[in-house]
């Protein structure tokens, strides 16, 4: 019974790390600049993450559980000559992947580095798939292309939303006593949407691996993933929230709103397509978009490059840790 729960521990850690990290992309700018109360932000994020995971998490789970591998090497339900051995092998791979991804995420979270959990998990899956000669290169390339497309997409949405909202505000010219509460409400609404998109897109990172190995149904995986992410949001979101919110660029309420909305729309689009992407990449793309509109002088390039290094390091770290754990898991003592 106890060992049954132990096998999900890696994903619990992964969900926790994801929640702690990525909730910063939803309410980070608003909380760090004191536009939205921290407690309200984390409670809303947790609730909408679960909602997003349950309502819209299917497509991403399908991609990570099936499409990234060529064969059924890990699939315990597949017909095998020795089904019991196949099940043990699949279980071992799932546990290794979940622990490797979680380890990479937790490690980099403690280093307060805004990283991509999607990249950590995909890196771990790809690492094991390479060992098993079952990597679907085509699917991997699609996912990597989507990763590249994430900041660009968010930047594109930033330009669109910025000019639409700016035109509206210039036309209405609201009083500061109207503008401010409207902004606060919009920041909360867009934050909730961002949390929904986060849950919908990233639940696959936490739970898809167990679906692929027949350990959880899709419905169970969505609930399990959503709850673990929510726990991360509720318990350890503040440090990264402050790093993301304060270090990249000092955002005013209007820019913060545009960033959150752009990243939410981008991440939700990928959730519908079924490609788990990084909300961090999306929010940084949006912030860079704001920087470009405002002339570039608002961007903290040092922090930005620090984040880029994290992005490159994450999939590689995920893959290497997975390979190392898999190697450890396959060590046997053979008495002479």
């Amino acid at each position: 019974m106890f060992t049954h729960y132990i096998q999900y521990l890696g994903s619990v850690f992964m969900g926790w790390g994801l929640g702690a990290n990525d909730s910063a992309n939803v309410f980070g700018t608003a909380v760090s600049s004191r536009m939205v109360n921290y407690r309200l932000a984390i409670v809303l994020t947790a609730a909408f993450v679960i909602l997003g995971a349950v309502m819209d998490g299917d497509a991403g789970i399908r991609t990570l559980s099936k499409d990234l591998r060529n064969d059924t090497a890990f699939d315990s339900t597949a017909t095998k000559a020795d089904p019991d051995k196949a099940h043990r092998k699949a279980l071992k791979a799932a546990i290794v992947i979940s622990f490797a991804g979680a380890f990479a995420v937790v490690l980099l979270t403690i280093l307060k580095m805004p990283i991509s959990t999607s990249q950590a998990v995909v890196g771990a899956i790809a690492g094991i798939a390479i060992l098993q000669h079952s990597l679907n290169i085509g699917s991997l390339l699609v996912i990597v292309a989507c990763w590249v497309g994430t900041p660009i997409g968010a930047m594109f949405f930033t330009f669109i939303f910025y000019f639409i909202f700016r035109t509206l505000i210039r036309k209405i010219k609201p009083s500061v006593f109207i503008y401010d509460p409207v902004m606060s409400i919009l920041l909360i609404v867009c934050g909730c949407y961002g949390a929904y998109a986060l849950g919908a897109n990233n639940v696959a990172n936490v739970a898809a691996i167990f679906v692929g190995h027949g350990m959880l149904t899709v419905e169970e995986a969505k609930i399990f993933g959503g709850i673990t992410i929510a726990i991360g949001v509720l318990t350890y979101a503040k440090p990264v929230m402050m790093t993301v919110g304060k270090s990249i660029v000092k955002l005013d309420a209007f820019s913060a709103l545009i960033c959150v909305l752009s990243q939410a729309v981008t991440v939700h689009c990928y959730a519908i397509i079924g490609v788990p992407v990084s909300t961090t990449q999306a929010v940084v793309g949006a912030v860079v978009g704001i920087g470009i509109i405002k002339g570039g002088q608002t961007i903290n390039y040092k922090t930005l490059s620090y984040i880029w290094i994290g992005w490159l390091a994450t999939p590689v770290a995920g893959a290497l840790i997975a390979v190392f754990f898999y190697f450890l898991a396959n060590l046997y003592y053979i008495p002479e």
Partner: peptide, 12 residues
Amino acid sequence: EQSLLPESREDL
């Protein structure tokens, strides 16, 4: 008591 955004609060 947080009825305005911080930047407006400081300016006002």
